[in-house]
Design a protein around this nucleic acid. Structure first.
Lengths: 123, 123
DNA sequence: TCGATAGTTCAATAAACATTGAACATAAGG
DNA sequence: CCTTATGTTCAATGTTTATTGAACTATCGA
């Protein structure tokens, strides 16, 4: 299989693309789940999201999230490990990611997200 | 012409719809412009956005912004006056709108927005 | 070396989206 | 009244989007 896929640089991250990525419920759920697990492991692999959609559909959404700069993919063996590009996002658009995550946390039921993480619920 | 068009209630405002609305450059520019003029007049009418797109295209974008709860339309004579639903947004998704506006303000050139307003540039 | 596991690629499909222009509706002002 | 200014509606268009399944590739472990 191919090498590490391309990622945009921090400066190349574009607001409309980021917002568009986050506007899809599946991608929002991916990002939310990444954010939740962040302090535990900081990385998750594709399989951890199997509940959200079919495999090839997930590949599609992962590519969008990568292309817009929201997450990074690291290839390790047969696994791809994903992590949020929190620092880059924060540098580029301060407060944005947190505001979205907090908004999502308020609506876990409507958005059918996994049970809220207390880290995010802090107000 | 018809009466005041329907608007969602505060509680009906949905995060993915809001983000999707804001992810379109034209709609983001509309919202940004509304936010800039806010302290001056709080309302703008359709014609004030003629620079952004054709008339019927603007009508389309206004409808999306209204449907997702980002703005309100008030009919007055042959004019429609728009204003941001700032309070409702803030109640529903605290900090979100400001984070987006601040992010947009950082990128006025890339996004081809009107010259930044000092109110928004405050950090 | 073989088989199972993890994920990608590709083509097909249906739905949603943005954009346009022409025709229309409404209200204000001379 | 008639005209002008504002904005909407509608149909047509081409584009992008999300989703699926089948075929494929690569890696790990027995």
């Amino acid at each position: 299989m191919s090498r590490t896929p391309p990622h945009p640089t921090r400066e190349q991250i574009e607001l409309p693309l980021v917002l568009d990525c986050l506007s899809d419920p599946i991608r929002l759920a991916i990002v939310y789940q990444l954010a939740q697990q962040e302090r535990v492991s900081s990385e998750l692999c594709c399989g951890d999201f199997n509940g959200l959609a079919g495999k090839s559909n997930l590949t599609y959404h992962f590519a969008k999230l990568r292309d817009c700069g929201l997450m990074q993919t690291r290839v390790a063996g047969t696994n791809r490990f994903m992590r949020l590009r929190r620092e880059d996002l924060e540098a580029r658009f301060p407060g944005l990611l947190d505001a979205v995550l907090k908004s999502a946390a308020k609506d876990t039921e409507r958005l059918q997200l996994l049970p809220a993480c207390n880290v995010l619920e802090a107000d």
